[in-house]
């Protein structure tokens, strides 16, 4: 099996997905969580794009269209997440969901 660029891109995409997942789980800060989600999104898109290149000459446009659609969807999601994070931040004057819990535990 020759290592074609497609494989590298695909693996990178999947790896990004996992990295983002790790970030989402381990980072308590909301902003980082949102960034982690965006890394995951990029990973998925990269993976999707590589699917279209499976057969050399003819490039499948459907995964491309999927990615384009997905980008817009993820932009919306990110916008909502950021706006919501702003509100949470304003309300609690804090940047993550964990801190509140630990603070109340300390008392």
């Amino acid at each position: 099996m020759s290592v074609s660029p497609t494989f590298v891109y695909g693996l990178t995409g999947l790896f990004l997905f996992v990295v983002g997942l790790g970030g989402l789980i381990s980072c308590p800060q909301l902003l980082r969580k949102i960034l982690a989600v965006n890394i995951m999104v990029s990973g998925v898109f990269l993976f999707l794009v590589t699917i279209g290149y499976g057969h050399g000459v003819i490039i499948d446009p459907v995964p491309h269209a999927m990615v384009l659609t997905g980008i817009v969807v993820s932009v919306s999601g990110t916008a909502v997440a950021l706006a919501l994070a702003c509100r949470v931040h304003e309300t609690f004057n804090m940047s993550d969901l964990l801190k509140r819990r630990t603070r109340s535990n300390d008392r």
Partner: peptide
């Protein structure tokens, strides 16, 4: 509800 919504969204 904001905190719950944030978690729900993620």
């Amino acid at each position: 509800s904001q905190v719950a919504g944030m978690r729900y969204l993620l």
